[in-house]
Design a protein around this nucleic acid. Sequence first.
DNA 1: ATCATTTGGTACAAAATTGGCATATTCCTT
DNA 2: AAGGAATATGCCAATTTTGTACCAAATGAT
Lengths: 229, 229
Amino acid sequence: MTEQMHKRVGSAEIAGILRREISKGTFVARDRLPPERMLAESYSVARGTIREALNQLAAEGLVEIRPGSGTYVAIGASEGTNPMVANAGPLELIDARFALEPHICRLAVLHGRLQDFDRMERLMEVMEAPGTDSVLFANADTEFHSVLAETTGNGLLIWIVSQINSVRNQEQWAQMRHLTLNEAIITQYNNQHRQIVNAIRTREPERAAVLMKEHLETARLSLTRAAAA
Amino acid sequence: MTEQMHKRVGSAEIAGILRREISKGTFVARDRLPPERMLAESYSVARGTIREALNQLAAEGLVEIRPGSGTYVAIGASEGTNPMVANAGPLELIDARFALEPHICRLAVLHGRLQDFDRMERLMEVMEAPGTDSVLFANADTEFHSVLAETTGNGLLIWIVSQINSVRNQEQWAQMRHLTLNEAIITQYNNQHRQIVNAIRTREPERAAVLMKEHLETARLSLTRAAAA
DNA sequence: ATCATTTGGTACAAAATTGGCATATTCCTT
DNA sequence: AAGGAATATGCCAATTTTGTACCAAATGAT
């Protein structure tokens, strides 16, 4: 068995990755992607592969390639999301999470397995790391709440939360993060995350739900406070 | 009767698994699935079996096989309806509604206006009318819960509930309605609807939420009872 | 205005990966 | 025992990826 069958990383894979990155909000509309040579290095792939992937995205109208200048995310690139979802405001989002996440905690208590807790643990470690900036924290936080939803094993809830998270990655939310996420808030969030996970671990559904409500109340407060300023 | 051949671990099984993986979202449109040799290893099956399964999927137009390149999820596969939503089971749906609707009731208390109550009133009259059959009732019931969501004025929640309701309109759910909706159940639902609306009218958020939980618990019970039969 | 740098566009051949296929064997059902 | 399906193996042809080199257009600094 000398054959290694290294998974062939092809243009389709790269195109898929970039598609996801764009729809996730890593690259926002009108922004310039890294040069082909740099993308090639970061994905450990030949430049020709990157070129082929970019040509696919260009054919889909997702990016615009300008020779000599760079490759830019097309203006209507992330319009795959629903208008209702795209126009959701911060308070609407918080209310929706208020509806969903406490009960998600209850269900997570019922279905939580060791591997779920491991994933949460890893994410909490990322969020608690000293050098974590607001962007890293926000990404880990979003994924943390996704894992919570996945723990329920309920495909419908998982999908709903993923849709909600797609809102959080919009452009306007980048500034919001910068305004609301100071060190004190992050510390508080980290404490609340730990408490929630502990409650789920010890199988206390109502306690987990209440803690999540408090967590969301904190988030709403820091939001309204930032809006006032 | 020629298809009663009950194969061991045949291509049909593999084809079914892959179909499920695609509709589950593990492989998204335009993605390339792993090479046949790798699929063979991960499913502990000969390459020929994988080949035949892939040919079945290709015949269904679910995947596109490109010699020398790979096998790709066809562009039009699982397009239109969200895979997660389409495959949601009855219990998943009830759990999701358990998460959403009690809090929707709380928010409805805060934002409920006269015209909202009028709409609910009209729908309740339809549901309570003597000649209402299960189909009419189910449609009115779905719309009732939609109005409840709209009453919150939260675009995000409205959209989520509309997505959830799109599940209830699937074909498979028609039978479910027929099995679960007898006259006694309908009467009970009507009473609960009235109580919920009254609690919202009198601005009692927690009471409305509790009543909604009881309503959903009733629905879950009649569902599990029908599933057992 | 000019020049150096950056960036995409193109070409080409070697190497690797992948689906297509043919063959013989084993296992299970009939 | 016979037939069909899955297995195991090997090789072929199509396609892609890679690595390199060089060109053209845009950008920015001098």
